[in-house]
Amino acid sequence: MNIAPRSSTAMVVVLAGSVLLLGGCASTWRVDNRVESHARWSESDQPQVAPPKAPQTYRFERLPSESEGEAAQRQAVIESMARDELARVGWSLAEGEMTPALWKVQVSASGQRVARAGLDDPWPHVPAYPYGWPYVWPAFNLGVGGHGGRVTGHLGFSGPLFWAPVFPYPYSGKPYVLRKVSVVVRDAANGRVVYETQAAHDGVWNDSPELWRAMFSAALRDFPSPPSTVRRVDVDLPR
């Protein structure tokens, strides 16, 4: 009885499974974002003007519709995400009414669910045999000829073969969600917008705090001196 080869094979299978398991645990989920940012820290159109140096203080600014009920709770959540990202560059939230704040920050987040992705096949998927019945697209042909003083003719019926579905087969694609976050910074003294940025991401992923946090991280990448071009910013999250 040859036991050693079987034991070796079993060990290889176990080790391979462990490697796959560890690889799955270490895998990441990439949130790709289309980011567009604009900065104008001076009242004049002089791009060489340097942005204010950290530390800086600010207050959040809300619309009237974001000040009560569930809307206020939702706004507090996304403001906390933006606050964490601004803290990374030395901007802190002013605590209390007596703390001076030179800037006002307004944040927003929105999502729109659509039936399918823009590049998905818009036609229903038709099942193949044996889930359908064969049918023939009819085609008739008529011929007349002569042979030995006799007139002959024929009538034919033919056509290509297709499969017709027995029952409707609806589109089975996953719902697709278009998401966008934005951050607007204003001068507290005169309300002038000095910085605006937005990040857009779309996909089949369900809503989660990590997803929205990654989008705010992408939107505030390179703050307060962003490049002038639209760019892609990827944020990797652990699965």
Score class of each variant (00 low, 15 high):
R113I: 15
A128E: 10
Q73T: 11
A128H: 10
L93F: 07
P51G: 08
R62F: 00
P124K: 08
M81P: 06
P100G: 07
T99Y: 01
A87W: 01
D84Q: 14
P64Y: 09
E97W: 07
A72R: 10
A82S: 02
P52T: 11
I78E: 03
Y129I: 14
E43R: 14
R113T: 15
R62G: 05
R116D: 07
R116A: 14
Q106S: 14
A87E: 08
K53A: 15
T57G: 01
P47Y: 05
A109I: 05
P130V: 11
A94S: 04
K53S: 14
V89Q: 04
T99Q: 09
K104R: 15
A101W: 01
P47A: 08
D84I: 12
D45S: 13
E79L: 09
R40K: 15
K104S: 07
S80G: 15
E95H: 10
R116L: 09
K53Y: 03
A76L: 08
L119Y: 14
S65Q: 13
E97L: 14
S42H: 10
V105C: 02
E79D: 08
Y58N: 01
P47Q: 07
V49D: 09
S110N: 14
D84E: 12
A87L: 05
Q46H: 14
V49P: 04
G118K: 11
V89I: 13
L93E: 12
S110L: 10
P47I: 11
M98L: 13
V105G: 00
P47F: 05
A128T: 13
L86P: 01
Y58M: 00
S44F: 12
E79Q: 14
M98A: 12
V89W: 02
L86C: 03
Q73N: 09
R40Y: 04
E79K: 11
F60G: 04
D121S: 12
F60A: 02
A87T: 09
L119V: 14
K53H: 09
R62T: 08
D120F: 06
E79V: 09
W41C: 07
L86K: 03
Y58D: 01
A101M: 02
R59V: 06
L119C: 07
E70Q: 11
D45C: 06
M98S: 14
P127G: 11
R59H: 03
W123K: 13
A109K: 06
P51I: 10
